[in-house]
Amino acid sequence: MKPDVQSPAKPKGSVQIPGVIVQFLSQATIGMAGTRDASLVPRIRRVSGWRVEPDQETIACTIPEGYTGGLLESLRDNGEFTLTVEEIGPHETYQFKGTYVDAGPCTAPDLSAFEGLRDRFGSVVHSLYGIPEKACRAYIARPSVTVRFRVREIFVQTPGPGAGRRLVPAEEK
């Protein structure tokens, strides 16, 4: 695909992703994203990898072919993008809500992130669920596009009563 650099709106602010969360993202094992169209109809986007850019405000997120229908149209329309990432096993989970920056073909670092996720997912899901590792690895599909978005909020999503608490920016007490 051709790079898509059309951003519908300037980000309403962005935040620094704390180092401990950057570390978490490097070892987490499953991620999924969401967009919505002009009619507020949400759409799931499976992701095949993610990486935090050096500014620690931007995440590059790779998406396989089966989940790209209407993706760029939605992002150009409203710029809303959300990514939820979990470490399977401990259930530690965070959600990153942000604003679309651009999209384009997957780069070498994007594909490296995909391969790392495939390795981690294959190993962990095989050991926890007993599903053959080959099937687990195949489940992380090769991505066809990379979406970059700037994070403006991070939420705790680890299951339990505290799920949904905003971590960054910190909630006012």
């Binding site: 994203a33 969401g34 967009t35 919505r36 507020l40 949400p42 959300t82 809500k97 669920y129 299951p159």
Partner: peptide, 22 residues
């Protein structure tokens, strides 16, 4: 099959939300 599912919703203000459900 016991594998968690994923749901994406959207607020009235237009902000999507992605969550894992059991």
């Amino acid at each position: 099959n016991g594998v968690p599912a994923i749901i994406v919703t959207c607020s009235a203000a237009g902000v999507p939300n992605a969550t894992i459900i059991s």
